[in-house]
Write a protein that binds this DNA or RNA. Structure first.
Lengths: 342, 342
DNA sequence: AATCTGGGCTAAAACGTTTTAGTTCTTTTC
DNA sequence: GAAAAGAACTAAAACGTTTTAGCCCAGATT
């Protein structure tokens, strides 16, 4: 059984292909097709189970009503939630989302952009990796709008971005810890040149300065991006082994690192918050359920997704036109969720 | 800047469109295109940054090299991992995956199938909802292969399926609990008519019978599918409030229910495994990190993804041909992971 | 000298839509 | 009663590919 095309319907209904097309696209009235013909066509189409071929449609119109979403890793809770929120939001604007993971690999990201570009998506929402600026500029040059999420390129201010205010979030966390009297605050972050992580790190250092504390290199662990689980765990265990004496609090700068930290803390049988206060940037089910519950700086994931989609749709609407959109990164504020670990 | 098409290249290289197409598809040798022309075309294509338009290609060839993956909810750990594994596997066969979530809603699932069908995906991997059999038959009638995962339709044995051996998995878990001496084993499951959950429930009851224990209705909680988090939590809290006396163990039949259970247990300050032994079907990061760690029946997620993809590709290769594939559901065995909670 | 062979290409149709510019009637207008 | 206007449609081009059938020429064969 082959698929029914518009011309199958035309034949069966005894009208032309164009007429069928008009009826199917609600242009029948504008094109002055008579009541009877409209009904006739609609009936035949329904009977035959017609579904427009989107490839053909996209080829002809140049619009696929599809947007490409590139995240770091779809199986990570943060990105999975973000993806879901973007998908739901997209549906409101009648767009479909296709998503893929870069695993933070520059080359893979490039391949994905190519792949999506070949499939003619109308626009992109991208969690960029390093050095992706040029590739993204190319998309823009082809009139395909792009919105960055979670990260941004300070040097490319012509690419709009929606992200959490990382500096403010970490500052807020640090003020909380410092306000509670902790002074030997360890930091666990991930190795990367990307601006969003640099902002977080800067906020940590600035907070220490603000409170007149000299930073201690030995309290900062930068885990290499591609280190395996075991190696990373060992690093964190080493850092936290002096909990209670040289370290009285720890701030994990990502969700994943926090989970890793929990594992280390569990292994070391450290008492929280007695020996060690724990704070993590970005929430996770585990933090809510662990005993004790872990305080976090919570990113407004839904809002990021919605705002990103909104920004994209705005540009999608005016493709080609030379509208003056403001491209300053949109920064949403993160909340401090106080739980038992501090 | 517009996208470059094959005819832009043809013009610039001073050859015909067909020649360019042959070169781009490695058919140049077969078509006896000369060395020089091949090189010329390749150079021009590279310079101009040509990327074939997959819509046009798909329209012409009828193949999009894309498969549709429909899961219940992509932000659930189980499905996220499954999706990742299928995506990775698909890449090996040079297929791209587009995925979407049904939220277990029959109508939404139908919409998604339509949407994917309109986008002309070559094949489907589907976590079906109830009553989707007919829609799937229609896909098959259009020569689009379908493989079910995680669930299946016993009454539709012409639709291949890859899933865990649910009956065996739960039996194994029950034997473990019963072997440890637990007798008042509560069960928390989800309300559904789908066969995979019925199999799990049946395994529970059969195990009790096998051990000469009379089933007690009050020990079984069937939470309605669309109950909100709070309502479901209350249900489980009620069930477990008599832990230590009327209940000595609890078996959660899904990942999500297990997490919910942890929340309830935390709320009730129940001692595990002292007052209550806990076992869950399907693993989750939380179970590994919770104190105490929670024992689980672990599904071989990667293997399910790989096997499903393999099965699909096999059929994709022989579309149209009337090959005699065996369509008995492929059942993979689940492992018992012993942790501290039993 | 006519025919055949093969090498090296190209023309054109086709895939399923959308959309512009008609065409053919019928009715209105002056 | 001729021209204009309108109503109800249709023909055909275009989107960017792939692929079949064929063209043209050079050299080989009869």
């Amino acid at each position: 059984m082959k698929k029914v095309s518009i011309s199958d319907i035309a034949r069966k209904a005894g009208v032309s292909v164009s007429t069928v097309s008009f009826v199917m696209n609600d242009k029948a009235v504008k094109m002055r097709i008579s009541r009877e013909v409209i009904e006739k066509v609609e009936n035949v189409a329904r009977e035959m189970g017609y579904r427009p071929n989107q490839l053909a449609r996209g080829l002809r119109t140049g619009k696929t009503k599809t947007i490409g979403l590139i995240v770091e890793n779809i199986s990570n809770a943060f990105f999975a939630t973000l993806a879901k929120s973007i998908e739901d939001e997209a549906k409101k604007y009648d767009y479909k989302v296709v998503y893929c993971s870069t695993d933070n690999d520059e080359e893979k990201a490039r391949d994905l952009i190519n792949m999506l570009s070949q499939r003619q998506v109308d626009g992109y929402i991208i969690t960029p990796t390093l050095n992706l600026g040029e590739d993204i500029r190319r998309l823009q040059a082809e009139n395909k709008p792009v919105v960055l999420i979670d990260r941004y390129f300070p040097q490319h201010d012509e690419i709009p971005a929606v992200l959490v205010d990382n500096y403010e979030g970490v500052s807020r966390g640090m003020d909380y810890l410092l306000g509670k009297g902790y002074r030997k605050i360890a930091l666990v972050t991930i190795e990367t040149e990307m601006a969003h992580m640099k902002d977080r790190l800067r906020a940590y250092n600035d907070a220490l300065i603000r409170h007149g504390i000299t930073a201690d290199d030995r309290l900062v662990r930068i885990v290499p991006y591609n280190s395996d689980h075991e190696a990373a765990l060992t690093e964190v265990v080493k850092l936290l082994s002096s909990a209670g004496t040289d370290v009285d609090a720890v701030f994990f700068l990502t969700n994943y690192l926090g989970v890793l930290g929990i594992e280390a803390i569990k292994k070391l049988h450290i008492k929280i918050p007695g020996q060690l206060a724990v704070l993590c940037f970005d929430d996770n089910d585990i933090f809510r359920l662990y005993t004790p519950t872990i305080s976090v700086i919570r990113q407004p994931i839904e809002a990021i997704g919605q705002k990103a989609m909104f920004t994209l749709v705005e540009r999608l609407r005016h493709t080609g036109e030379d509208v003056n959109h403001s491209n300053a990164p949109i920064r949403l504020t993160a909340d401090l969720v106080k739980r038992e670990s501090v």
